[in-house]
Amino acid sequence: MKTKTIIAVTTAAVTLGGAAFAESHGGAMKIGITQNNVGVDSYQTTYEKAFIEAAEGNDMVETIVLDAGGDVARQIAQMEDLIQQDVDAIIIWPTNGEAVIPAVRKAHQAGIPVIVTNSNIAEQGFDFVKSFSGPDNITQGARSAEIMCDKFKEMGIEDEAQVVHITGQPGYTTAIERAKGFEDRLPEVCPNVTVVDTQPGDWNREKSQQVMEAFLVKYDDIDGVYAGDDNMGVGALNAAKAAGRDGIIFVGATNFAVGYEAMAAGDYWGSIYQSPVDDAKAALQTAVDVLSGEEVPFLNYFDTPKITQDNMGDFTKPVF
Results as ranks from 00 to 15, higher is better:
1 M>V: 15
2 K>L: 13
8 A>C: 11
12 A>C: 06
13 A>F: 04
14 V>H: 07
17 G>P: 00
23 E>I: 11
27 G>C: 06
33 I>L: 10
34 T>I: 03
35 Q>V: 04
37 N>V: 11
41 D>S: 14
47 Y>C: 08
48 E>V: 15
51 F>H: 04
55 A>K: 03
56 E>P: 08
58 N>V: 14
61 V>M: 06
61 V>W: 01
64 I>P: 01
69 G>Q: 07
71 D>L: 09
82 L>I: 04
83 I>G: 01
83 I>H: 00
93 W>P: 02
96 N>A: 08
96 N>V: 05
101 I>A: 00
101 I>H: 00
106 K>Y: 05
108 H>D: 04
113 P>A: 05
124 Q>V: 13
124 Q>S: 15
125 G>W: 01
128 F>C: 09
130 K>Y: 12
136 D>P: 02
139 T>C: 12
141 G>I: 06
143 R>D: 10
153 K>M: 08
154 E>N: 08
155 M>A: 15
161 A>W: 04
162 Q>M: 15
163 V>N: 06
164 V>Y: 06
165 H>T: 12
170 P>N: 09
170 P>H: 12
171 G>N: 10
175 A>F: 03
177 E>M: 11
178 R>P: 02
182 F>S: 01
191 P>W: 07
196 V>G: 03
203 W>K: 01
208 S>K: 05
213 E>A: 11
224 G>L: 06
226 Y>N: 08
226 Y>V: 07
232 M>I: 09
232 M>H: 08
233 G>N: 05
234 V>G: 01
237 L>A: 07
240 A>R: 07
243 A>M: 08
245 R>C: 11
254 T>E: 11
256 F>V: 10
258 V>M: 14
266 G>F: 08
266 G>H: 05
270 G>P: 00
273 Y>K: 12
277 V>D: 07
281 K>D: 08
282 A>H: 06
285 Q>A: 11
290 V>M: 04
290 V>P: 00
305 P>G: 07
307 I>A: 10
309 Q>V: 15
310 D>W: 12
312 M>I: 08
313 G>D: 14
315 F>D: 09
318 P>L: 11
319 V>P: 05
